[in-house]
Amino acid sequence: MLRTCVIGLGPIGNRHADIHQADPLATLVGVCDWNPERAEAAGKRLGVPFFTDAAKMLESLRPDMVSVATGGHEYGSEHAAATMVALEHGCHVLCEKPISNELEPARKMVALAREKRLCFAVNLNHRFTPACRHARKWLAEGRIGIPRFMNMAMWIGNPRESSPWFHFKALHPHTIDIMRYFCGEIEAVHAFAIKAPGRSIWSTAQFNFRFKSGATGHLTGSYDIMRGHPMERAEVGGTRGRILLEDMFKELTLFPHDSSEKIVVTNPIIGGMGDFTDTFINRIHNFFVELTGGVPHDRIDGQAADALAAQAVIDANIRSMRTGKVERVDPGSWTGNYDLSYGKPGHSPG
């Protein structure tokens, strides 16, 4: 049984704590927030010791694993400090996204975890669904052949105006992770964005991508559309077919070129995904399974290096907005973790 803690007790941190408590592979042993009222409220609600100093909690409780959900500017500026202290105390870490709102702290976080050979994952929860796994299986088997283009879209209503790049940095770790998961490394980008009426941030954007494989990609993102109707869509068109994944887990469709019959996998109402919270449950449980099973730090799924790669793509898009040009993604950020051979003989990780 893993001994776990949570640092950062806003709504997301509390959600992590609830999931830790409910998971059969973990025992939540403590929680921490710099705000004493939040720490106390969560500690009492969950029935675990609570702290306002992360180092003291880690020294006192010596957990195996820590969830970091501290937030901060652009939802990520406080991730680095909490993660670094957890890693220094020998804990495996699952950090909320974005790994950090800036690249340099993110690089240091990944480097420290690597140096200490600790598992460091990021909550890229949108793809921890049966439908997304199924889509990747189809891709790996070559069911659509070689990808030629990918389209992705995601939006929510988020009225915060915290920084010009808030929408880019905080929303698109998810979408870019899915795009890399399906089509591999992104080589070059271009962005057009607008500030919706009454807003001061780049709240709606169109991102164009060229993958290293030569396939092309496109991503629409927005903080201007309220939740309630479908909010996410991913499709990949290839030399033998097309797949379409709607709302992360609701429906996956394969349109084969050589048949007029399409294959549809629909989320069942018994035993299927319930709602969006299940993406958190699946993602966190997956990490617990990997830790329990002793999966090496560089083989875990949704690892921080891939979150860093996604942030590097976001950084290139911000540069594109500033220069008005096509910008290249730093190849030093590539991990190769998601490479697929698309049905051809060769390396095809699961």
């Binding site: 030629r148 283009f149 962005a191 057009f192 607008i194 954007a205 169109q206 496109h218 629409t220 097309r242």
Partner: peptide, 23 residues
């Protein structure tokens, strides 16, 4: 196949995917 990003004169951002590789 092509992915075309667009800035529209009404202030919206646009995009067009076109392909001769589908069915």
């Amino acid at each position: 196949s092509a992915q075309i990003n667009m800035m529209c004169s009404n202030g919206a951002v646009g995009h067009l995917t076109i392909s001769y590789e589908m069915v």
